[in-house]
């Protein structure tokens, strides 16, 4: 497999009041261009930490990350992050939130009119163009998350990083957003790394599911390929044997980890 994004031998230690805490140890993962990968694992195992290292928001203590031939060592719009709590600026309208990023990133490359069209285009991608003049507190949680995604897409990132993007949403809203995300992924071919707690979501969306062992010194426990054909429809998948099998495998892993937290499943 041609690695587009490569995590090699990454480990990280945090300095805490009670000494150093090793959160991750020898994490290795290769991700191909256009691939959709989800990270799943028990709470506190270090998923967000992996994502933050990919984003450049945290520095790995050892090992490193290479994206498209270049080493990652600081945050960049190449690796846009969708945060769990949308992280929109509450004093800016939906449009202005996206504009802030677009203006900064495409300064000198796009004209004013081009920037405007680009912002509109991205708002349309996530179906939020009708609310572009609203402030974040005037729209629902699902809509806020859409704006967060639009802002990231507008950065034209090489990798889209998502930390439990739908974790705080109700089931129906979540389903809509998952569909939108699948549509965007298939149209744009973006490489996505997403954290989730939801097994169904992981199976539905991913090409591969990366299951992490429990911390401290967490690592990758098991990687599951999801060979389901795309485009995927949640209704058809509901009783597909492959879907159920994949789901079963992930649940089994999580259950084992819960029962025997120390050991790495085979």
């Amino acid at each position: 497999m041609q690695a587009y994004l490569e995590i090699s031998n990454v480990g990280i230690e945090f300095n805490t009041e009670s000494g150093t805490f090793r959160a991750l140890q020898s994490v290795n993962l290769k991700i191909a261009k256009g691939e959709f990968v989800t990270l799943i694992g028990h709470s506190g195992c270090g998923k967000s930490t992996v994502l933050n290292i990919l984003a450049g928001l945290h520095q790995a203590t050892e090992g490193g990350v290479i994206l498209d031939g270049k080493e990652v060592n600081s945050p960049s719009p190449d690796r846009a992050v969708v945060f769990q709590n949308h992280a929109l600026l509450p004093w800016l309208s939906v449009y202005d939130n996206v504009e802030l990023a677009v203006k900064q990133i495409f300064r000198g490359q796009k004209s004013k009119a081009e920037m405007h069209d680009w912002i509109q285009h991205n708002l349309e991608l996530v179906h939020i163009e009708h609310a572009s003049s609203k402030r974040p507190h005037e729209i629902s949680g699902g809509m806020k998350q859409r704006v967060g995604i639009a802002r990231c897409l507008a950065m034209q990132p090489k990798v889209l990083l998502m930390d439990e993007p739908f974790g705080a949403l109700d089931a129906l809203t979540k389903a809509h957003l998952q569909d939108s995300l699948m549509e965007i992924h298939s149209n744009l071919g973006t490489t996505v790394v997403m954290i989730t707690h939801d097994v169904d979501e992981a199976v539905l969306l991913s090409d591969r599911i990366v299951m992490m062992s429990n911390g401290p010194a967490a690592s990758i426990g098991e990687i599951l390929e999801v060979p389901l054909a795309r485009p995927r429809s949640r209704l058809e998948l509901a009783d597909s044997a492959q879907f159920l099998q994949a789901r079963q495998r992930v649940l089994q892993f999580l259950y084992d980890k819960h029962k025997y937290p120390g050991t790495v499943a085979a």
Partner: peptide, 9 residues
């Protein structure tokens, strides 16, 4: 928000 600012530099 600080992280957003860092990501968009």
């Amino acid at each position: 928000l600080i992280n957003v600012s860092r990501v968009i530099r």
